[in-house]
Design a protein around this nucleic acid. Structure first.
Lengths: 253, 253
DNA sequence: GCGGCTTCTTGATCAGGATCAGTCCGCGCG
DNA sequence: CGCGCGGACTGATCCTGATCAAGAAGCCGC
């Protein structure tokens, strides 16, 4: 019974959503915002870009956005909510591959196999923009900016895949995980130091290749060290620098 | 002193090279062979494809093909020899990211950051085809087949990144590694059951996030179990099925 | 041939995290 | 209200693989 348990009281949770789009503009924080800007608002090409987008959802917590083996026809940008991608091996064990926040894109790894190689599951109620991939490819051949944007999205994801590689201690992994989430929220315009973990401890553990008990222990210790405030799934990064130092070697750069 | 030490005697090593190209055709086993075929031999577009290719090398063992931070201008297809990509963290520790065989492509993860995010080092004397990326992008906008090919290459690499993820035992990792190498050699027309490990035990261990001692021990045990024959860096997969069963859960599919 | 080097192998010990087990808490429901 | 259930936290033990250490085998140049 240590007395600093109260250190991490957190009130009202924020509710991230990347939906400020209208019939002409895409959401500012969307991964495709760059493509829009490159095209220029109001040009006919932007119209074309809109024609191949379809708003889908809402999906409820636990719903599948797509399943392993589904034929690949489109990629999805998260508009609201968060998503995990995972695959299930022969023995039925789940393998969490990643978490996706509002503004991020899922489904890129399905282009080559032409079917989705993993499940995508909503962690909260979620909505998406669905981009028909054949239409997008066709548009890309006419618009170098769109093509380049797709190349960059793909290449970027290649870089992030190495976050979970490496033999690193549980402390390093958890610290890097928190920093990564924070900076991704910040990049989309949300608070980078205070947010809700939309996934369970088990999902975090699975993603980081740890046991959920270990994640619990590390988070508790981080809190007692004053690095974070924590209450349930609400977290605040109190000493982001220290966390970043802990996690460096895992983090990009 | 066990008597089965002799079980793994292997004579003459094969010397993989993917260089059957001439002034008109690309090498059959090259990752771009598909793009060539899609275009059709003799068409003017194939000429265009050739214009942006440049044969470079030979590089000697240990030479850098590119270094972390080098400005990104081109991607490279391995024509002969093998390559490892790695990065060095702040503490000076090396992190091996991947091995690339003749016919495979390196440099795709540099598109987004616009500079190479890792080193590429020749593990044997090696030669490459260098594809100017700006020229390739420009060509892709005119030729949907080339664009699609690039998308597929990128997406494919996304899939392979998950090989080293997951918390798996040393046995599973080493088995999966051997199977993966074998199937990649086979896909390029070489023997998929008998090949040389062009990288050191230390590199394998680093890539698999194990200690080199562990790799040694596992390989030795695999040999004593009759799963492989092994002499120095020559290896033969004697019971590929058993290895694949061991490694499944790591391997694609 | 011989030193000097790196790589590989094998053995002995150690530690980080998995696993097993138990408790607590919040929540939905009869 | 009590009950059951899943998620989260904590404690005790175990096991895999890292680490430390030493020897064996190649592979140079000379």
């Amino acid at each position: 019974m240590r007395s600093d348990t109260r250190a991490g009281r957190l009130p009202d949770p924020p509710s991230p959503i990347a939906d400020d789009g209208d019939s002409v503009r895409f959401c500012r924080t969307c991964a495709f915002a760059g493509a829009c800007l490159a095209v220029g608002y109001g040009k006919p090409e932007l119209e074309a870009l809109h024609c191949l987008v379809e708003h889908v959802g809402p999906y409820r917590t636990g719903d599948h956005v797509f399943r392993t083996g589904d034929p690949f026809r489109a990629i999805f940008a998260v508009r609201a909510g968060t998503v995990k991608t995972s695959l299930v091996d022969r023995e039925g064990r789940e393998q969490v591959l990643g978490f996706y926040l509002p503004g991020e894109v899922i489904g890129l790894n399905a282009i080559y196999p032409e079917q989705f190689p993993c499940d995508a599951i909503a962690l909260e109620n979620a909505q998406f923009c669905r981009f028909s991939f054949p239409a997008m490819s066709a548009l890309a051949t006419r618009m170098p900016a769109v093509q380049q944007h797709l190349f960059r999205l793909l290449s970027k994801e290649l870089g992030t895949a190495s976050l979970l590689a490496g033999d690193h201690s549980a402390d390093e992994r958890v610290a890097a995980f928190l920093c990564d989430l924070g900076s991704r929220y910040a990049a989309r315009g949300f608070s980078g130091t205070r947010f809700a973990l939309s996934m369970s401890r088990g999902d975090i553990a699975n993603y980081l290749r740890l046991a959920s008990e270990t994640v619990s222990r590390v988070l508790t210790r981080f809190r007692s060290q004053g690095l974070i405030a924590l209450e349930g799934r609400q977290v605040e990064l109190l000493d982001a620098d220290a966390l970043r130092r802990l996690g460096e070697g895992l983090l990009p750069g």
